[in-house]
Amino acid sequence: MGKIKSTLKKILVIDDEGDLLELTRTRLEVSGYKVLTLDSGARALEVAKCEKPDLILLDVVMPGKNGCDVCRDLKADAATRGIPVIIFTARYPEEEYLKIGFREVGADDYVLKPFDAQALLAKIKFLTHQNS
């Protein structure tokens, strides 16, 4: 089991919409990933430090602390700086900003909701391979 554990990439998904969070978890799990979920950005840094995920999938528009701020915090902390982050949103005009602005907040890539599952998986695969 331990071997399996070590081979499975661990992904932290942070989204305030529970339904979508559940679907994303399913999609990632059937694609061979270990998935952790959070329904807000408040505990993101703490969980990331503790669990050390291989990648973080982060929604931008959330009540409380938004995705952009969470991302900045992650990239500012030496312990979490190395974890690749994909941020996503469904809201205009935030998504327009995201296309050019994702690097500014330190994210490694972006996706638009609703996801094209294959495109998302390709990006995850690329970022986790490079990191490993």
Binding site: E17, D19, L20, L23, T24, R27, A90, K113, P114, F115, A117
Partner: peptide
């Protein structure tokens, strides 16, 4: 779009 995405993904 959000619920649409959810339905679609499901």
């Amino acid at each position: 779009r959000s619920p649409l995405g959810a339905i679609k993904e499901g």
